[in-house]
Design a protein around this nucleic acid. Structure first.
Lengths: 137, 137
DNA sequence: ATACAAATTAGAGCCGACTCGAAGTCAAGG
DNA sequence: CCTTGACTTCGAGTCGGCTCTAATTTGTAT
């Protein structure tokens, strides 16, 4: 079990930010020690790291909250005893996950395009810098 | 030549935003008609669309400004007459572009990872929803 | 016992990125 | 000529996402 500052070190998020995420519902409150200090599990840490990756990919906290709510994206599914309760949850999660996947794949396309453009341009620059100056593009 | 509202339609950015980008130096001011109205070229529009893609990938306006300054990313290089003036510019651009490429490739890795995780999970969900209920994961 | 480091809360403040309102200018159509 | 609509500038307001301060409490070391 880890303190908030240990989690801070591992995730790169400040304790301020971790408490803030909890306050606005992006993270659920972890368990507490005697005296009230937050204490995190390893699995909570990897959840936070995953969340952080999504943020770097440009998703808003609101989007992240939607995609990770009920453990859609990052947690194992909890199967209830009764299939009647279970199936609607499963369907809803499948739907949310599909939407999420489309989002990511759109980003992937844009990103791949930007990367190949950049590589092309870089190749031209490198060619120019070691070669002749008489061929402006 | 296009008006600001035509550019707005094509890029999905509001006229407010376009003027704001100009104010803070993300976009350079376009030429003006008689009377002072902004008028944009097609090439300016594609520049703006590209900028917009970078934003969707999670880059800040400051990063975008750095990467696109002097036309590093999106514009053709302007070659001066004198190689002595030209080479340092070229080297600086090559450096900025390389940094930019690393950024994008890091994002690409994260993104690919998130996508394969998501696909795996979705496959499990789909399997569950059409199959037996007795194997909770 | 006491001092120190690290945690807690509530609430205020800050910054980036828009977003809008007000007041004014200009070109074209009835 | 005068209205209409799209443009202009400037400054203020909003919102998301932190970031910090202040006052307090707790656990550990001397």
């Amino acid at each position: 079990m880890l303190t908030i500052s240990q989690v801070s070190e591992r995730t790169g998020l400040t304790p301020y930010t971790l408490r803030y995420y909890e306050k606005i519902g992006v993270l659920k409150g972890p368990s507490r020690r005697e005296g009230g200090a937050r204490t995190y599990t390893e699995s909570e840490v990897s959840y936070i790291q995953c969340l952080n990756n999504l943020k770097k990919l440009g998703l808003s906290l609101e989007e992240i909250t939607e995609f990770t709510r009920d453990g859609c994206v990052m947690e194992k599914i909890q199967l209830g005893e009764d299939p009647a309760n279970f199936t609607p949850t499963l369907n809803k999660r499948t739907e949310i996950l599909s939407k999420y996947l489309l989002d990511l794949e759109a980003k992937q396309q844009e990103l791949d395009h930007m990367i190949s453009l950049t590589k092309e341009k870089l190749a031209v620059y490198l060619e120019l810098s070691k070669g002749s100056y008489e061929a402006p593009i």
